[in-house]
Amino acid sequence: MAANWMRRSLMVAACASAALLAACGSSTTESAISPQRMIAFGDGMSDVGQKGTRYTVNDGSVNNWTLQVASGYGKTLSASSAGGKSYAAGNARIVAKPDAAGSNTTLTVKEQIDSFLASNTFTGDDLVMINGGISDVIANMAAVNAGTMTTEQMITASRQAGTDFAAQIRRLVNAGAKYVVVAGTYDLSKTPWATDIGRTTALNSASSAFNEGLLVGIVDLGANVLYVELASYVNRYTDSPSAYGFENATKAVCTSVDATDGIGIGAGKVNSALCTTSTLLASANQDKYAFADSVYLTPSAQRQFGTYAYDRLRSRW
């Protein structure tokens, strides 16, 4: 069953990605975009400090992929809570509440877009970056562990969340966004968390289902939407870590234990939103690790994905 699901998911994702790429033309000096405003939505992967810290090692560097893309264009990006245009928030789900950590106050991705559109309109030189799916898969896995959802229901719910995500991306385009960069979830079966709880198969299927729902839903938006393969990129980190400068892609480098359920994987777990250079494994070089905590990526991993996304942007528009 799982093998059939994976084959189907991979075929759908490949076809959808190909369709999106078919709308792409080579960028030229004359046609290359020069964004004047950077806007972001999403979850902990894109959160640049909604509550003051980021879901990575908080070392003062450009340690988030959206910041890396912005820096490529000579721009900056700050959290909406600080007056900026990044609405992404840790643990945010696409449309469901509570969030992955059980809070009802975190804005969903839909609500983040609502908030932006309530007082802003898109212009022709805006660049929108959006990610989603990580928190929905985490929340669905928590429901399975609690016995309120079966594994098959988790997979179905994750696919629906991907479909809901696609609807929000379509909303952006319909509201006038010309350039939208989209990342789904990475394969959460590759995380230290998946290994710790022994649920790699279920998390692989749920992650694939989310991305399948997303890709099918945006397959006709290639003129305005660029899908960047976060799942594929993180797979490379874990499959061939040394090629990306990593020596460890199976263990978290942070030691910042959160007494609460800070990232949705249980209380008493490491939460990178609390991590600084003073809360790392003894003698560890953070640049040699792919994961900051059991779910989220280190600054080096974030920057490398951001550079990849920027390069894709430059070749696309």
Results as ranks from 00 to 15, higher is better:
Lys190Pro: 00
Thr56Phe: 01
Glu212Val: 13
Leu127Gln: 00
Asn63Ile: 05
Ile155Asp: 02
Asp136Ala: 13
Thr279Cys: 10
Ala309Cys: 01
Lys190Thr: 08
Gly25Met: 10
Asn131Trp: 06
Tyr55Arg: 08
Thr260Asp: 11
Gly198Lys: 04
Tyr227Pro: 13
Leu297Cys: 08
Asp196Trp: 03
Ala223Leu: 12
Asn63Glu: 07
Ser81Pro: 09
Tyr296Thr: 06
Lys85Ser: 13
Ala2Val: 14
Gly184Cys: 10
Ala18Arg: 09
Thr148Gly: 09
Ala273Asp: 08
Asn174Tyr: 03
Asn271Met: 10
Trp317Met: 10
Asn211Asp: 09
Leu203Gly: 00
Gly133Leu: 06
Gly266Ile: 08
Gln304Thr: 09
Asp261Asn: 15
Gly74Arg: 09
Ala183Val: 04
Asn131Thr: 12
Thr260Pro: 04
Met6Tyr: 11
Val180Phe: 03
Asp258Gly: 10
Val234Gln: 02
Ala177Ser: 03
Asn248Ala: 14
Ile39Gly: 05
Thr238Pro: 06
Leu226Asp: 02
Glu212Tyr: 08
Ser272Tyr: 03
Ser103His: 06
Gly42Glu: 05
Leu107Pro: 01
Arg312Val: 01
Ala209Phe: 05
Ile130Lys: 00
Ser205Tyr: 12
Gly176Cys: 08
Lys75Ala: 13
Gly102Cys: 14
Ala82Gln: 13
Leu67Pro: 00
Gly217Phe: 12
Val12Thr: 10
Val144Phe: 08
Tyr233Trp: 11
Ala79Gly: 02
Met154Tyr: 08
Leu21Thr: 04
Lys85Asn: 13
Tyr73Lys: 04
Asn204Phe: 06
Ser9Ile: 05
